[in-house]
């Protein structure tokens, strides 16, 4: 499974300030691999994307693309829709 994350928006409005990461889950240590597979499970992402977003002043928007053997799926998630644990995981990636 390959996870690609691109952020945009934020207080600065500067594209270069935002992270852009691509990782292959298979290359990660066992624990990280498990955490990533759970957090970035496409149905889980789709569920998060449907949550109400609330206040968004200066917040980031994440474009998350997950590719596995069968297909590629993309989701747009507001920072406020992503649980803190998952944001920590993104910061660790």
């Amino acid at each position: 499974m390959i996870i690609e994350i691109a952020a945009q928006g934020g207080f600065g409005g500067i594209a270069a300030a935002n992270l852009h990461k691509t990782i292959d889950v298979q290359d990660q240590p066992e624990q990280m691999r498990q955490d990533l597979c759970e957090a970035f499970e496409p149905d889980q992402l789709a569920r998060l994307a449907r949550q109400p977003c609330g206040d968004c002043a200066d917040r980031l928007t994440y474009r998350i693309t997950v590719t596995d053997d069968r297909r590629t799926r993309s989701f747009t998630l507001r920072e406020a829709q992503i649980p803190p644990d998952m944001l920590d995981l993104i910061d660790q990636m």
């Binding site: 600065g12 609330g54 200066d58 920072e79 660790q92």
Partner: peptide
């Protein structure tokens, strides 16, 4: 967060 390039009001 870590190395976070942002500030916001939530």
């Amino acid at each position: 967060r870590r190395d976070y390039n942002n500030a916001f009001w939530n």
